[in-house]
Amino acid sequence: MDITNIKIIAEKEIAQAVTLEELETLRIKYLGKKSQLSKVLSGLGKLSQQERPLVGKAANECKIIIQSLLEEKVSAFKINSAESGVDITLPGIRKELGKEHIISTVLKDISDVFVKMGFCVVQGPEIETEFNNFTGLNIPLDHPSRESFDTFYIKTEKNRERLLLRSHTSPVQIRVMRENKPPLAVVVPGKVYRPDAVDASHSFMFHQVEGFLVDKNIKFSDLKGMLQKFAVEFFGSQIKMRFRPHFFPFTEPSAEADISCIICQGRGCSVCGRKGWLEILGAGMIHPNVFKHVGYKQGAYSGFAFGMGVERIAMLKYGINDIRLFFENDKRFLKQF
């Protein structure tokens, strides 16, 4: 048997050994006086001048390798047996740490993308005036979304104005713009409310992230560029984004943005309805009437705004199939993320 074969077989047998006794037997077999290697080494004298150093070197190397393999294995056995003092396979003494709610994490992750670009975070109140939630945002008095089917109203009024639970995070646009002059780059993560009966995909309370950038000469192409960057940062570099015209009273032109389906990479699956695209956010250039309502001079500024539903994004990203799970707060759910 040549030296290479000895090595291969020895390695295999050592790997298979499960007791210290077996390892001792192997040591005698491969490194003992009667082993093949010993025979090779003791027979070196019989070899020719050229062969002798080559064979000698190979045999010695083989011996060293087998020796170290055996030692490694033996010490591994010793660590695992109680002999050395600690059974390191016992569970570590660790403190169970708490976890942030997945919605908080996603809210923060979305906001952080924009914060890195220079946005700051503002939170508005959940109880809003009708002006901030609707009128200021160019939503006409007779618009269906103002009806009690679509917005929760509060029994108490304030200064003769109806109060409501905000139905989107956009009123924060009005609050911030009334108090501040551009440049403005703001993200608004928060809770919103709509009277939808609760089922697997509806909830009367959910979360949105709103964002807006207002300055001189902000363009629609900037809006596209920035949201494309968001998609890549948040969902990954392989993500494609497309923009479709849409309608919102507070933006003009308006758009809806889709991302290539994160489940099927755009090939078409049940999640994206075989379309390959997932609707992810609404956006547009802030409507001149909104600027008018906050007291900005006509034509002085331009800007864009966007908004997205956080539960939907979390459900897509983490494969959660029922919106109610977020608010049930079962410990087994909270522990997972």
Binding site: P183, L184, L213, S221, D222, M226
Partner: peptide
């Protein structure tokens, strides 16, 4: 919007806005 719509939103080249220091502060 009408012109952009028919021209095609996808034919509008993405650009990068220049974001200045904000006049609002974090809460």
């Amino acid at each position: 919007e009408e012109v952009a719509r028919i021209h095609g939103y996808s034919n509008i080249k993405n650009t990068q806005p220049y974001i200045k220091f904000n006049s609002v502060k974090d809460d």
